[in-house]
């Protein structure tokens, strides 16, 4: 536990010293403050009778909107944005953890302690994940509280979206750690993780792509890659579907099956096991 806490403190202090993270928190806070101060809603009997955005009246055309639906719509849309932004920022803020650890002159200081290599790597992984959780939790939690304050609508499903986002971050961070162990380069870790994110998202249409290719082996390869890589597109849809609940369109609700979660979790575990194995074997 001491090792984990020491690593967590190290990761947090480094994060605090890095301007990227400070900038992220500053921008997020500015967004939250603007959001909180700019939106003024007039709610009558659970319906939105009037709204002011940046002090300007929003035309309702005499049709009051159900506030519950409005909140649901906002939170669904916003969760999709956070899925993309939160994931990218979390990877950007944590992908350096392994390359920096492996720097000459630094790795010796850590490995000369009575800590197994796998334990050291995994404690940094957990620390990185906690850091990402704080980032995502801060943004989602603040927006959720502001929505409750402004609308009095309590919608805990919005937080469920955060859990899926963290699951995706955990998966991609495992991959970034694997690349970091192999290459010791932060830039390569970040770029390859983003590439996996987009490539895996494209593979959501694997059936159509496989049907379009000319050779059977190409189709088999595409289908295999689909099952190997994390299901970034499906999990993005799952975030929106979870937040929307029963209001979600059917095409989104259809992804709420165990398959994307299980295969993505397997990808993450394989990446972590491989990263740990390579880190154990690596000579410094």
């Amino acid at each position: 536990m001491r090792v984990l806490l020491a690593n967590f403190e190290d990761v947090m202090r480094e994060a605090a010293a890095r301007w990227t993270l400070v900038a992220y928190f500053a921008l997020t806070t500015i967004f939250i403050v603007i959001f909180a101060s700019a939106v003024n809603l007039d709610i009558v009997n659970g319906a939105l009778a009037g709204a002011k955005l940046f002090g300007k009246e929003v035309q309702m055309h005499g049709n009051p909107m159900a506030i519950d639906k409005l909140v649901l719509g906002f939170e669904s849309g916003f969760s999709a944005v956070i899925y993309l932004l939160g994931t990218f920022l979390a990877i950007f803020a944590t992908a350096h953890l392994v390359p920096r650890l492996q720097e000459k002159g630094t790795i010796d200081l850590y490995l000369s302690r009575p800590v197994g290599r796998t334990r050291l790597l995994l404690s940094r992984y957990i620390a990185g994940l906690l850091l990402a959780s704080i980032n995502v939790g801060y943004l989602i939690g603040s927006i959720w509280l502001i929505v409750i304050w402004k609308t009095h609508v309590f919608h805990p499903r919005f937080l469920l979206g955060g859990v899926v986002i963290l699951f995706v971050i955990a998966t991609l961070l495992a991959f970034a750690f694997l690349v970091g162990v192999v290459t010791s380069t932060t830039a390569v870790s970040i770029m390859s993780t983003y590439a996996i994110f987009f490539f895996a998202a494209v593979l959501v249409g694997h059936e159509r792509i496989a049907a379009a290719v000319s050779h059977e082996w190409q189709a088999a390869l595409i289908n295999s890659l689909y099952w190997i890589f994390p299901k970034t597109a499906e999990l993005g849809q799952a975030v929106v579907a979870l937040v929307s609940g029963g209001e979600a369109p059917e095409r989104l609700s259809a992804v709420l099956t165990p398959a994307p979660f299980v295969t993505t979790a397997i990808f993450a575990v394989v990446c972590l096991v491989l990263a740990s194995w390579l880190f154990e074997k690596k000579e410094f």
């Binding site: 090792v3 690593n7 190290d10 202090r13 010293a17 002159g105 630094t106 200081l109």
Partner: peptide, 21 residues
């Protein structure tokens, strides 16, 4: 040519490496 992380103070560095031991 060791590189004790520059973002740490001497106290913090000793605390982190001490706890790791």
């Amino acid at each position: 040519g060791h590189k004790i992380p520059g973002y740490l103070t001497a106290r913090q560095a000793l605390s982190i490496f001490g706890r790791m031991s």
